[in-house]
Design a protein around this nucleic acid. Sequence first.
DNA 1: TTGAAAGCGATACCAA
DNA 2: TTGGTATCGCTTTCAA
Lengths: 345, 345
Amino acid sequence: MRPTLQDVATAVGVSRSTVSNAYCRPDQLSAALRTRILDTARQLGYPGPNPTARSLRRGFAGAIGVLFTSQLSYAFTDPFAVRFLAGVAAAAERHGTSLLLVPLPTGATQARAAVENAAVDGFCVYCAADEDWALDVIRGRGLPFVTTAPPADRYVGIDERAAARSVADHLVGLGHRRVALLADTVLPEAPPGPLRLAGADAARHPTTRGRLAGFADALAAVGVDWPDITLLNATGNSRAAGAGAVAGLFAGDDPPTAVLAASDVLALGALDALGERAATVSVTGFDDVAEAAAAGLTTVRQPAEEKGRIAAELLLDPPADDAAGQILLPTELVVRTSTRPVPRS
Amino acid sequence: MRPTLQDVATAVGVSRSTVSNAYCRPDQLSAALRTRILDTARQLGYPGPNPTARSLRRGFAGAIGVLFTSQLSYAFTDPFAVRFLAGVAAAAERHGTSLLLVPLPTGATQARAAVENAAVDGFCVYCAADEDWALDVIRGRGLPFVTTAPPADRYVGIDERAAARSVADHLVGLGHRRVALLADTVLPEAPPGPLRLAGADAARHPTTRGRLAGFADALAAVGVDWPDITLLNATGNSRAAGAGAVAGLFAGDDPPTAVLAASDVLALGALDALGERAATVSVTGFDDVAEAAAAGLTTVRQPAEEKGRIAAELLLDPPADDAAGQILLPTELVVRTSTRPVPRS
DNA sequence: TTGAAAGCGATACCAA
DNA sequence: TTGGTATCGCTTTCAA
């Protein structure tokens, strides 16, 4: 059996409190006694206070939970998510707090249980909002949390709609009218490829809703409206899914002259699928991940690490002023070579 | 005050055990009573059993710790580390276990404390071995652990030396003799750029030692030996550091005809720094991360996710057979366009 | 099917 | 400076 604090106390011939003090309140006992206690502990093979017991007694865990809506292992596939996480880690690091990455099992009950059982002092919820159940569980536990989108008491996001409109305006300004929108999992079970949608509001995920709405705003300004807009559904936020969604679209008559993607990853996938044709079709992304620059992708930049860092900070030292917890970060249109004027035909 | 299990018990008029059973042993009480308990709990706002208390009582945390030697936020900068983590996450996900990412503060005492205080059931130690202190703390706590390199009871690594030799042999086969080796933090405080080293064994980090030794093996086979080998030190495993290390090297007389880097990231940095000259100098990497393919980098592939996945599995369900815990994964030389025969001059 | 009692391993107050 | 005592919130035999 691994020795406990009590064993050390017995061995030294002092009380538990004194041993405890030797570890976390050196000033509460004489240096000599402390040394004696620590030495004995070492001899006994006592590994120091049990973290779980300490957490229970002290009432906090020393870790914050990070919740990704999709499968945890997918999060590492998404370059934007990784940079967000890097930001969270940087803040946690400075604060001396650990990060608990909680995988969400597929079953609803089990996913709830995962959030219920996380030994953390708060949550950083990436990209949820649709995942209301998770927020409910967190609220139920009385834990503080930060999301990456409004509405919430504390969030750090961007103005999705305005940002999306900025790229779309750019494209419209280049003369594009036949434009396809490309987004991930627009409707829960939708197949890859063209999807009929009444409007942006019908999209399942709030982020997607915002971006599609922004795209549509720009198109509406030049007379292109739902449901005439071509919407392409990707079954996942990955390059492959992006490629899959646009496949075949340009084979028919009267193909679009541009693709507005709701993420860089999807846009890069679209470029993959376009191959040679990429020279004539304009494509835009969203996020400005590292790969975007290399591919010459026109996109909207949002500060990724910053978002994660601020989210974690909002959680770790909450602002005194309530209103200060609702943050919209600036975005910036980054024009590269993947967009050009509509070819005259 | 947040209600506890006891409060629910009191409210319903049953004992704590019964409430506990309602949560974790539904078969131990009548459905009717269970429903009554759960309903009351909801009314009271009881969030379910406290995870920390449960962990303490049950004796396990339901999480595994992940330890990166460098700063945690840097880990997300390294594409190989990210893929490793993705593998770990995939295994954890399947196992219903969370991942605790533990940041290591800079101070020695504090770093120890971070490992001592992690409420986990075991550790996945990425790339350590030199970080013996961490392994000592983990052993002291009596927790199981897996590393990414021997020696250890359980590890999943590659034959660094042989893998390194395979790229180096390729380069030597192309006629290169004046070759510069490029590695990260070869000696603790070394400045960026050329570094005099007696031999591979002098390198600080075991992984670096293995790779440099493999490179040197190939060179030795054609009569090039330490300390005549040009070694370039990068101050960090990043593209920028790679670029910084090779800067100026090709300005002088008799520059190397090739650069053997200990990681893809460094190699890509070298290519950045070479610019135009990259067409005449051969460069190789190590790992085969995604960016390597795009850049046409010749490199050694090692299965990244696989490594993480297996490491986590080794931890989560340890093999009955002790010897089965020591795994060397296969590697593969991937020849692309960044290497070519020595130009005749 | 339900309950009583005994911890899990530690911390913090207050008194000595 | 040290020790006694209560408690953190829950799970788990074992007996009723």
